[in-house]
């Protein structure tokens, strides 16, 4: 009896220990990033272009670049993703097509991001001749975000009660009217939550834009989607691995990380707030 108690005590506390260490790591991690990078972030840092080969100045072009990459990738991924989710939840015929589409989605979700980069390089940069540009990078990121958006949208659409759909059909609405006027509006907040999370993911990806969109140093803001851009995640990487003034570049890298991290955190917090409000309002 006593031995069993000891086992239970040790076991449960071992689990506590594991989760405690994970939490402590997260705290140390956030502390290191924010304490070292926080000092660097200022209004000038956010609104000025880099100077003197990246050793001074701000990161404004990288913020703009990340903004455009994210927005354009969503323009591709969002409609495709939502329509695919509608196909999977409302039509879903024939069964063999559904099975193939599912395998494709699951595989796309697991393909390493560097392979997306190579795909973008071959297809968008070289075959379509978009060159290294915002467009190539956004399309690559859009394909990468697609499985996340499909899964989130599908789950959202499935969470709409069957009665809603049946009531609408019984009132004489067509399949299309039911989807557009009943299912989509009801599922929209949940779809948004999923989309917002994938925006955070896309904004932070580095490997897919290495050869498709990113450039280390430009003082110019992009003038069209065919321009190369700076981007926040790539900027961090480049500051750490290129140039020869590590003592000046590392603090800027921390500062950039704070900006990127803050963006991702704000975006995730937004998603959590939306999700919380939906749960509170929902009456079924």
């Amino acid at each position: 009896m006593n031995r069993r108690k000891i086992f239970e005590f040790t076991g449960v506390n071992l689990l506590r220990f594991f989760i405690l260490i994970t939490g402590i790591f997260l705290l140390v991690f956030l502390y290191v990033i924010f304490s070292r990078g926080g000092k660097v972030v200022s209004w000038e840092f956010l609104t000025q272009a880099p100077r003197k080969y990246m050793t001074e100045g701000g990161i404004y072009p990288a913020i703009v670049g990340t903004f455009w990459l994210t927005v354009i990738s969503m323009l591709l991924a969002l409609p495709l993703g939502i329509f695919t989710a509608i196909f999977l939840t409302s039509y879903a015929k024939p069964a063999w097509l559904v099975r193939i589409v599912r395998v494709a989605i699951n595989t796309l979700a697991g393909v390493p991001s560097i392979i997306y980069g190579l795909f973008g390089l071959t297809v968008f940069v070289r075959i379509f001749h978009f060159d290294v540009s915002i467009l190539s990078g956004s399309l690559t990121l859009g394909v990468l975000a697609l499985p996340v958006i499909i899964n989130a949208s599908e789950e959202a659409l499935r969470s709409v009660p069957r009665d809603f759909r049946e009531a609408s059909l019984a009132l004489g609405a067509t399949e299309r009217q039911t989807i557009l006027r009943i299912l989509l509006p009801t599922a929209l907040p949940n779809i948004l939550t999923g989309t917002i999370i994938s925006i955070g993911r896309v904004a932070g990806e580095t490997a897919p834009i290495l050869f498709t969109a990113a450039t280390f140093y430009t003082r110019m803001l992009p003038s069209s989607v065919m321009d190369e851009v700076m981007a926040l995640p790539y900027h961090i990487y480049a500051l750490l691995t290129e140039g020869s003034h590590a003592e000046k570049q590392v603090p800027i890298a921390y500062g950039t990380a704070v900006v990127l991290m803050a963006m991702v955190l704000i975006i995730s917090a937004l998603a959590i707030v939306i999700r919380y409000n939906i749960r509170k309002k929902r009456k079924w």
Binding site: L26, E205, T206, A207, A257
Partner: peptide, 19 residues
């Protein structure tokens, strides 16, 4: 907390490891 770990961009993990 666990979700937060998942949402940190990999390049920032890289920065933490490197610096």
């Amino acid at each position: 907390i666990i979700e937060l770990l998942a949402s940190i961009p990999s390049v920032i993990y890289g920065l933490f490891g490197l610096a």
